[in-house]
Design a binder for these strands. Structure first.
Ligand code: ZN
Ligand code: ZN
Ligand code: ZN
Ligand code: ZN
Lengths: 136, 136
DNA sequence: AAATATCTTGCAACACAGTTGCAAAAAAGG
DNA sequence: CCTTTTTTGCAACTGTGTTGCAAGATATTT
């Protein structure tokens, strides 16, 4: 509870009930969430637009990061020290085709790639799809 | 021209002008294309819905494959022998943040990853974002 | 070349995702 | 409690993708 306020303050954001609820939803569910997922979880409490704006703000401030998915965009908590200045992620994302959940494999890093000359990489996004341990 | 008909026939598809035009657009532009790109290129000639359906058909028949992108879905030609039965891709996609183009790096393969126990991988999608040689 | 069966297209209508402007409400700071 | 600044809700709008159905085009057979 107070933990949430601290996190928001640490990223220079005012504490509002919507931001607390969205953040706490990300913490309790551990998988990546789409806007629709949040709308479902927080129900009638907040306007769709407010949730969109909250996601955008969290993204900019380095609280969450984008997770690419074959059926759209999702978001997941940044576990490390991301900030307004820079996101730093090199972990792998796994989507289960059975249960549909997408998760960060935090301690599984994307192996380095030798790009052809002239390509200047800035960030990496590896999605592996298949069956997760729960559905296996 | 006749090449197009051959490709379509090879995938058990009737030749129609829309399919020929979409296919030839994929061949001439070499980067990954979104539905909107095609709508822009083919202009007034075809209905939006027809282009959607053409993409869906091409996808199913193994003529094109999905390319994940932080701003949506794109499609690119399958260079190897994909079919209705199976797509086989393990190459890397690169999106340039300057010009916005996304391309297949056909001869750059995704390095193997050792997943934790219980994870059963089926397919892989690695997107690298940065600056491409043209914009460097 | 015409008839037939089958597949493809365009249209209209819809469902869902995401954005913008603006006035009212809430938070932070004194 | 008052002021400043940020955030929210609402309404309206744009964009993306889907579905049903009748009309049109393609391949196949006669
Ligand atoms: Zn981050
Ligand atoms: Zn992640
Ligand atoms: Zn393929
Ligand atoms: Zn590709």
């Amino acid at each position: 509870m107070d933990q949430l306020r601290e996190t928001l303050k640490g990223h220079h954001l005012r504490t509002t009930t919507c931001r607390e609820d969205v953040l706490s939803t990300f913490i309790s569910k551990k998988n990546a969430l789409s806007h629709g997922d949040l709308e479902g979880a927080l129900g009638e409490n907040y306007d769709r637009v407010t949730i969109y704006r909250t996601l955008k703000t969290f993204l900019e401030k380095g609280i969450i990061h984008k997770v690419l998915d074959d059926e759209g965009l999702r978001y997941a908590l940044c576990s490390h020290n991301c900030s307004e200045e820079q996101h730093q992620h090199d972990h792998i994302h796994f989507k289960c085709n059975e249960c549909g959940e997408t998760n960060c494999l935090e301690n599984l890093h994307i192996p380095p790639v030798q790009l052809p000359l002239g390509y200047q990489p800035q960030n990496f996004n590896l999605l592996i799809q298949g069956t997760c341990p729960k559905c296996n």
